[in-house]
Design a protein around this nucleic acid. Structure first.
Lengths: 394, 394
DNA sequence: TCAATAGGGTCAAAGGTCCG
DNA sequence: CCGGACCTTTGACCCTATTG
């Protein structure tokens, strides 16, 4: 206390307290721990008498470590490694303001032009399912990755799907450290927000993997994606949630929701939550939906001719939808036999009605929420839900 | 003191006394308190059987907390607020272990088994279809008759179904002279009104022909009928409409509507009209739906677990719904062969999603219409849509 | 009254996280 | 891949109300 600032005995930097028995700075503390934990053995390039000082402490790790020992750092103060604590950066206390417009938006909408990949047409059974499965797999990997571009709805819908771009896939499909967890934590408004944005982004890339989608007009594309904006994210959330009991949906970052009423959210969104639990999660678990089945069901849900699209678009979408449905049924027959297949198939397809209702009610809830500014949607989300100010229907 | 050093039952470190009912060390005591107060939910990275010992007690927080509970730490010993609750009674130390009153968690709380209801099984194919057909036939005859009682929703829902009453049927099932026509005429507001009332009346009688319906509570009955109040009348109207072209729905009295925009009606109801034409009428015609198929589809539409009914009601309704669906499928297989059946079946079932959306949007439109008093609903209709003033949810 | 007990709170110093 | 600023977690120590 007498001296406001004690110095690190190793390097003379300002000490951040006593570590391993010695007043020391953060750097030397961490260096000491890591060296021991990782059992590093350094070699001095000189005479084992390098000076260790704030400015040059990293120059010779051998001498730095020797200095640590010499000033009395105590290896026995090291503990057994602890449980992981999960992602920290994002929950950091905000500095003050953190506007940071910096991020150079104009550049890097790179390779919008990629040759149309030709492989869509041939739908032999195996080919069909391998495509469905790889679409679903890639979609989920994208969801787990850290990649999240900022762009307008039009850019999002008219570019080529990242999921069809092998170069992108090999470069970016790494699970973000944010999307792992060691602890569940009840979801907050800002978590909902994060996952909405993320799932909407993934939805746009998902949509563009459908040939029929890419052939629509921009307005129809927007309408179809808008119509799917509640259901597809919900399906992703439910299917990919680890099983923590029948009434809990867990996100990849360990946030979860359950039946707890959340009074700060609009009533419509609370209701949606119960619908998801009762009418989607529960049946999925009961019929033990398989990966391919889920992938097909998601496609069927996406290809919804009820969206406010043009009449011709409805026809095209429905045609594709029926084709997928037929494949799904064939798949189930193969695996379950006809007796069981029909039961599971019916059960699964009937979930569609629940999805439909949910989408409709939630859209309304979203509208109301936005009206009362309960929820801070981004401009992308607003564009998605409400269309652009110009050139939209109704 | 008799025993020089008691050990922490959780981690075998030296105990600092009894905490939360168990001899335990400072660390485990604090860990337990914090975990509960901050509502942590940990996730084990391994097999939920990590050992917990002094040296490695921090390695897995999930297993450490489980051990706390297992050795009998008592969450209720935590005090909600320091100065309000006061201190727990100090009884003499429980001798050692075997804290028998442990309200511990290891007993899983949720083994909620609902008895599988057994009764529905015996539905021989023919018996089933003859019942479905006669229900549908009677329902339509009632619709065409002149009979139209005035009564409250409660009276309507809790009485015996007229369609099951042979005396009533033989006395009243005569086509009303009002329900014939020689000439089409465009529908007016008051015609809509007339047919709404009529179809809602028929709906109540239809509903009561379902065993599962009669077993519901009154509130659930009302909710289910309310949920069907848009869809079932639409189905009746569409299926029973004579074919005057792909975009025209004709009522039994010769009134009709088509794609003409009706500016005096709320926008939501105009939209519903297009949905009915595009997403119900058209597919019905295209797949050439048969009488039995329609009857089953209507039942499936009616038996909608998405209605705001109790959870148990949802289960019961869904069970019946799946049973009907299965029968419908079997019927189609018999008639069409498997290849064609699956196509028609999928197409038909997927109409359900359109019905769902329509119901939801129309309900909203009806609400808005009522709000602005655009449409003069009767008190029965208001009761149907909005419930009674008392005893309703939300 | 007061020592002993068992609650809750605190904060230095452990360990973990993740840009640059 | 490493450094270290920054974050969370831990637990020894402290305070306090209750009890015998």
């Amino acid at each position: 206390m007498e001296n406001s600032e004690e110095l690190c005995l190793v390097c003379n930097d300002i000490s951040s307290g006593y570590h391993y028995g010695v007043p020391s700075c953060n750097g030397c503390k961490t260096f000491f721990r890591r060296t021991i934990m990782q059992k590093h053995i350094f070699v001095c390039q000189h005479e084992k008498n390098c000076s260790v000082d704030r400015s040059i402490r990293c120059a010779c790790r051998y001498c730095r470590f020797e200095k640590c020992l010499k000033v009395g750092m105590d290896r026995s103060a090291l503990q057994a490694s602890r449980d992981r604590i999960g992602y920290t950066k994002r929950t950091r206390k905000p500095k003050r303001k953190e506007v940071s417009f910096s991020s150079s938006s104009s550049m890097s909408p790179q390779n919008i032009f990629y040759p149309e990949s030709p492989g869509y047409a041939q739908k032999a059974y195996e080919t069909y399912w391998s495509y469905v499965a790889s679409r679903e797999k890639a979609s989920n990997e994208l969801r787990l990755s850290a990649y999240a571009p900022k762009r307008s709805l039009k850019e999002a819908l008219c570019s080529k799907s990242l999921l069809n771009d092998p170069i992108f896939l090999s470069n970016h499909m790494i699970v973000s450290s944010r999307h792992t967890y060691t602890e569940l934590r009840f979801i907050t408004q800002s978590d909902y927000h994060y996952w909405h944005e993320r799932d909407w982004f993934v939805l746009t890339e998902y949509a563009k993997t459908f040939k029929v989608f890419n052939e629509l007009s921009y307005n129809d594309k927007a309408a179809l994606v808008r119509h799917a904006a509640i259901t597809i994210p919900s399906l992703n959330q439910v299917y990919n949630s680890p099983d923590h009991g029948p009434d809990t949906v867990v996100f990849p970052d360990g946030t979860y929701y359950d039946r707890t009423h959340e009074p700060t959210r609009p009533a419509g969104l609370n209701r949606k939550k119960y619908q998801v639990l009762d009418l989607v999660l529960k049946p999925f678990r009961e019929i033990e939906i398989k990966f391919n089945e889920f992938a097909a069901f998601k496609a069927i849900t996406f290809l919804n001719p009820d969206a406010d699209v043009s009449y011709l678009a409805k026809l095209a979408i429905n045609e594709e939808r029926v084709a997928v449905t037929k494949q799904l049924y064939a798949f189930m027959i193969r695996n379950d036999g006809i007796e069981k297949a029909i039961k599971r198939f019916s059960r699964l397809i009937l979930i569609g009605t629940s999805m439909s209702k949910m989408a409709c009610e939630s859209k309304e809830a979203v509208w109301i929420a936005d009206f009362f500014e309960n929820i801070g949607y981004t401009s992308f989300a607003k564009e998605l839900f409400f269309g652009e100010r110009n050139s939209e229907e109704e």
